[in-house]
C-alpha cells in the first residue's frame, strides 16, 4: 500500500491535469493544484528550517571543523526569522505590512541580504571569463567553430565591429560584422535552440508517461 497509494494519486492527478488542458471548465484546476502544492511546501518549510537548526547546532555543540560558520548561519537565521515573524521595528506593529521600509526585516534584507546576493551574482563575470577561456581554445574543429562564432558575435556587439566593416557596400551588408552576428544568433543559434526545445518537449512527454504509468518509481524511493 505504501507504494500503490502514491502511484494511484500520481496517475489520477496527472491524468486529471492533462485533461484540464483540453476541457475549458477544468482549466483552473492546474492553478488550484499549484495552490495546494504551495500550502504543502509551506508546511515542509518547517522541516527545512528544523533541519538547518539541527545540523548547525550539532556542528557547534561538537565543535566540528569550521563550526564558526555555523554560528554565523544560526544567528542570521534566527535574527531574520524573529524580524519577519514578530515584525520587529514595524510602525504598524504585528498587523502592519512587512515590506514597510522601517521594519527590521526590510532593513536587513535591503542592507545585508540584497548586497550579498548581488556580490555572488557579480562573481559570474569572472567565471564567464575563465570558462570562456577554456571553451574557446581551438583544440579541435568544433571548438574552432565555437571560437570563430563567439569572436564574430563579441565583435559585432561593439562599435569597433561596426567601424571595421562599415566600408562593405550595402548589397553585401550581410558580411558586415554586426549583421553577421545577428545572422548567427537568429539563424544557426536559434535553430539549435529550437532543436533542443523539441527534444526537451518529447523528453518531458516520455518521462511523464513513465511516471504516470508507474514504470518510473525512483522518485518514490523505489527502483524495483
Amino acid at each position: 500500500m505504501k507504494r500503490e497509494v502514491p502511484l494511484f494519486i500520481t496517475f489520477f492527478v496527472g491524468t486529471l491535469l492533462i485533461a484540464s488542458v483540453f476541457i475549458p471548465p477544468a482549466e483552473s484546476w492546474g492553478e488550484n493544484f499549484s495552490v495546494y502544492f504551495d500550502i504543502i511546501a509551506v508546511f515542509a518549510f518547517f522541516l527545512g528550517g528544523g533541519n538547518l537548526l539541527r545540523i548547525h547546532l550539532q556542528k557547534v555543540a561538537s565543535k566540528r571543523p569550521d563550526w564558526g560558520y555555523s554560528i554565523v548561519t544560526l544567528v542570521a537565521f534566527l535574527v531574520m526569522l524573529a524580524a519577519g515573524l514578530f515584525k520587529l521595528g514595524n510602525p504598524g506593529g504585528i498587523s502592519g505590512n512587512l515590506t514597510t521600509a522601517q521594519s527590521w526585516f526590510q532593513i536587513l534584507f535591503q542592507n545585508i541580504m540584497s548586497p550579498l546576493g548581488s556580490t555572488m551574482y557579480a562573481l559570474l563575470a569572472f567565471f564567464v571569463a575563465s570558462a570562456s577561456y577554456r571553451a574557446f581554445r581551438a583544440k579541435n574543429r568544433d571548438a574552432t567553430i565555437l571560437l570563430v562564432a563567439a569572436f564574430i558575435i563579441l565583435l559585432g556587439r561593439t562599435p569597433f565591429g561596426t567601424m571595421l566593416t562599415s566600408w562593405i557596400p550595402p548589397q553585401y551588408d550581410l558580411l558586415q560584422v554586426p549583421n553577421l552576428a545577428i545572422w548567427i544568433m537568429s539563424g544557426p543559434n536559434l535553430a539549435g535552440q529550437r532543436a533542443i526545445m523539441i527534444g526537451i518537449g518529447l523528453g518531458i512527454v516520455s518521462m511523464s508517461l513513465r511516471i504516470l504509468l508507474g514504470i518510473e518509481r525512483t522518485y518514490l524511493g523505489d527502483d524495483r
Binding site: S132, G199, I200, G203, S206
Partner: peptide, 14 residues
C-alpha cells in the same frame, strides 16, 4: 563549457 560531461535537454529526462 565548464563541466566534463553535459546532458543536453532531453538527455536529462532520459
Amino acid at each position: 563549457a565548464a563541466c566534463d560531461f553535459a546532458l543536453i535537454g532531453e538527455e536529462l529526462f532520459a
